[in-house]
Amino acid sequence: MKEADHHQDAIIATNLRKTFADIVAVDSISFSVKRGEIFGLLGPNGAGKTTTARMLTGVISPDGGNAAIFGYDIVHTPIRAKQRCGVVPETANAYSDLSAWQNLMLMGELYGVPKHYAEERAKTLLGALGLLERKDQKVQGFSKGMKQRLILAMALLHEPDLLFLDEPTSGLDVQSTQLITGMLRELNDGGTTIFLTTHNMEEANRLCNRVAIMRKGEIAAIDSPERLKMAIERLHTIEVSFDPAGTDDKLASLPGIKSARREGDKWMITTEDVDSTIHAICAFGVEHQLKIEVLRTLAPTLDEAFLRVTEGGSYEP
């Protein structure tokens, strides 16, 4: 239910920490998410994204630090904090022995939504997510994409002000993904704050106002996708292909080139100095009597920013 209050921050996390035995899953992270934002949490496998989301949704309790949802402490006033949130966990299922409709009505009851209103909402959501004809079928027979859409509908039934999604589109086809991201954008336009974790840089780039990149339980960078990309601007990528294609690896040893790797029949070259590198490549072509088929410079992507920040992928030649 919508509640009129004046907290500017939907989420404030302060020194949140969680350890499992000797693994520090989340290492005293602090950040805040503004009301109305779409905030993305990125990071490689095992970075601690899910653990962070679980602490913020009150599913596991932090070992240290605290978090507030619209000013409600998640440990001390969990009911009020949870009442404001919709949650799509990473590996969650609807009750497979119940129908889609029954699952939605259960959520309505658990969030204290008046019955007639819950029914109306359920119809709207099922319609918007393309599940209306299947509403009385048991979830058992649903495909992965249908289940995920149902889980989203279940999270939205009580019109939460803040929506948590842990990898909402992983493993889904293009249609389901677009349906979900479209819905998220619409919700955000309507004022819903969204916190999502994802591996999909393109999705984060298109959807998020701000992203945090996690690495080994810590936040390695936090900024808007554009600014994160700009931060690595000094490293440019040049794509080039020659004819005949079988060029030897001498290319990588040209001056000014940081790395060169083959991708199919193309070479992907990274450099700090675009101008001199292009000149060097042209000279290289002339010297070896190679015809340049394609030569273009690519702006840095969030992928690259991500790789740089997490140091996950080295620029192997």
């Binding site: 679980r54 949704t57 009150g58 599913v59 969990p78 949870k82 949650v87 969650a92 609807a94 658990l110």
Partner: peptide
């Protein structure tokens, strides 16, 4: 086991 518990305890219930 059915992976419904996490969703359940994310609900505003004690």
């Amino acid at each position: 086991q059915a992976r419904t518990l996490e969703r359940l305890i994310a609900c505003p219930i004690t």
